[in-house]
Design a protein around this nucleic acid. Structure first.
Length: 510
RNA sequence: GCCGACUUAGCGUAAUAGGUAGCGCAACUGACUUGUAAUCAGUAGGUUGGGGGUUCGAUUCCCUCAGUCGGCACCA
């Protein structure tokens, strides 16, 4: 159907517009694309007309023109831009409706909408585009994720470190980042003559902690982790929502190990990733990219060909042994080495890269890192870079869109919301419950606004509070707590001690 | 950065073929005190994103800057 519709669109465009200089079409199971260059301006406003013309040619085709945009001809930024129209076609109205409904629902679970509705993060024109501000509620989610992440990483042998946001430019010149990403560095100067760079990555800082002492082969692997902000001067057109920002909170980790340990180290990190995403209930709908060099342009990378060959081979072996079925993607490697990138989907089904494991033989050499081996000789360690959450920003995109804003109770900004049947008669008991739960370190809120109970319940549900407690005469007189879980009709009643036991058990669930 | 669209009160929106703007939710005030998803009444809130231009007059037309969105390109 997509093929047929695309042909029809082409016919209509040729009829309606003149001087078509470039054209190109392709389609897959999901969409069709028609690309062309004409003199006239075409925008989404013309879709109505185009759709009518297509329908005239074939009334049995059910389709929608989705978007129009400029794209570089043949995907090369040196070429001129041409117009692309994207559409989708079905053989009956029902399927089309289903698809349109999916688009509507996707709007509802857009992380930007959820982030706003649930009061998790915001932006300010004063602060600047691409600089997200986490609200108190959003900060709870972020901090809880960090705690969980670090707890798990400690099991895998990581030690937390903490580095400044600034560094002398020479750090990044040595690492190679300044050479490749010169245009993307934020430079910071002072009237006193300081010349710094805001760190765009944490790995060079971590190498210097490694280098602060003489290391023995017995100590390796040494694994550092740090969740901190990095700053990258992205192109303005790339920035949007939490998917791509200038200030990015990266959950970064590096392992310094011996060559013989590399493969096991990569396996450990992949297991760590699997472990975390399984706990989060997100270990599905992913695919893995074996991101290798652009073989035609070796000058884009640092390090020797032999090292690269070996690195790519190791990652391939790990992929095979762990059954990751990694798809080889040329030109997707990092500056210093190939990667295994774990790709997930956003609300609209677009790929987002989140966790990653990267091999790096180059940077330790450039920094002259070494350890003393069994024979008392200096050896260069290998670095394995890894991100599990990736960045907190991008992880939140995945989390909010996959869960439609319904967070597990351990992550929820408010875990328990208390609503009185009557503020007049139940206020004291509600306050008492609130204090007891607070003392138990449960994130509890008490809605003592002068609203109707029904409205408070609705609000509590809209804010996706996992547990809503209702307190009335029955509870007050018998020292009980009645509660409902989000989305359930069933009400349970427990005494206070039982409730605390219950809620703690719920919070500990992963 | 490139192509295109958009920007009206905290949020969601309506309107003007050029004559300074309505509504809903939220907020505030008052009444009501309710047993599981929106009580009633009232009040306040806008230099229609910023700047410039055309015009007797611009929220509407033009330019420009910023921001947002969809793509492209980029992504350590």
């Amino acid at each position: 159907m997509n093929e047929k519709c695309c042909e029809l669109l082409k016919k209509v465009i040729q009829k309606e517009y003149h001087n078509i200089r470039l054209d190109d079409m392709f389609y897959n199971a999901d969409e069709f694309y028609y690309q062309f260059k004409v003199d006239e301006q075409i925008s989404e406003k013309d879709f109505n007309k185009l759709e009518k013309e297509i329908k005239k040619l074939d009334s049995n085709i059910y389709f929608k023109l989705l978007k129009i945009s400029g794209v570089y001809y043949k995907g090369n930024a040196n070429n001129e831009m041409i117009t692309r129209i994207v559409g989708v076609a079905f053989s009956n109205q029902e399927e089309l409706n289903k698809y349109l409904q999916f688009l509507e629902e996707a709007k509802e679970r857009d992380h930007r909408k959820i982030g706003h509705d649930l009061d998790l993060f915001c932006f300010s024109d004063y602060v600047g585009a691409g600089l997200p501000l986490y609200t108190p509620r959003g900060t709870i989610v972020k901090d809880e994720l960090q705690k969980e992440m670090e707890k798990l990483c400690r099991k895998y042998g990581f030690q937390k470190v903490s580095c400044p946001s600034l560094a002398d430019i020479s750090l990044f010149e040595t690492s190679g980042h300044a050479g490749k990403f010169n245009e993307e560095l934020f430079r910071v100067e002072s009237p006193k003559g300081h010349k710094f760079v805001l760190k765009p990555v944490q790995c060079p800082h971590h190498t210097q902690i490694y280098a602060s002492k003489i290391r023995s082969y017995k100590e390796l692997p040494i694994r550092y982790m740090e969740s901190d902000k990095q700053y990258r001067a992205e192109l303005p057109g790339a920035v949007g929502g939490l998917s791509r920002v200038y200030a990015i909170t990266v959950e970064d980790g590096h392992s310094f190990c011996r060559r013989e340990q590399v493969k096991q180290e990569v396996i450990n990190m992949c297991n760590l990733i699997k472990d975390f995403y399984t706990r989060m209930g997100l270990w599905d709908q992913y695919w893995v990219s074996l991101s290798v060099r652009d073989y035609n342009h070796p000058e884009k990378y640092i390090g020797s060909k032999e090292d690269w060959d070996l690195c790519e081979q190791i990652l391939k072996e790990v992929s095979d042994e762990l059954g990751l079925k990694a798809k080889k993607c040329e030109g997707e490697a990092a500056l210093y080495g190939p990667k295994l990138d774990f790709m997930f989907k956003d609300a609209l089904g677009r790929d987002i890269q989140i966790p990653t494991v990267q091999l790096d033989f180059a940077m330790p050499k450039r920094f002259g890192l070494f350890y003393i081996d069994e024979n008392g000789e200096k050896q260069t360690p290998v670095m394995v870079h890894r991100a599990v959450l990736g960045s907190y920003e991008r992880f939140l995109v995945l989390l909010l869109e996959q869960f439609k804003g319904v967070l597990p109770i351990w992550l929820s900004p408010v875990q328990v919301n208390i609503i009185p049947v009557s503020l007049k008669y139940h206020d004291d008991y509600c306050k008492k419950i609130q204090q007891i739960l607070r003392d138990e370190d449960i994130r509890v809120e008490y809605d003592d606004s002068k609203e109707q109970m029904g409205k408070k319940i609705r609000h509590s549900n809209l804010m996706k509070n996992p547990i809503t407690i209702i307190i009335g005469d029955k509870e007050k007189e018998n020292n009980l707590i009645s509660y409902r879980r989000l989305g359930e009709e069933k009400t349970d009643t427990l005494n206070i001690e039982e409730f605390i036991k219950f809620i703690k058990k719920e919070i500990n669930k992963r």
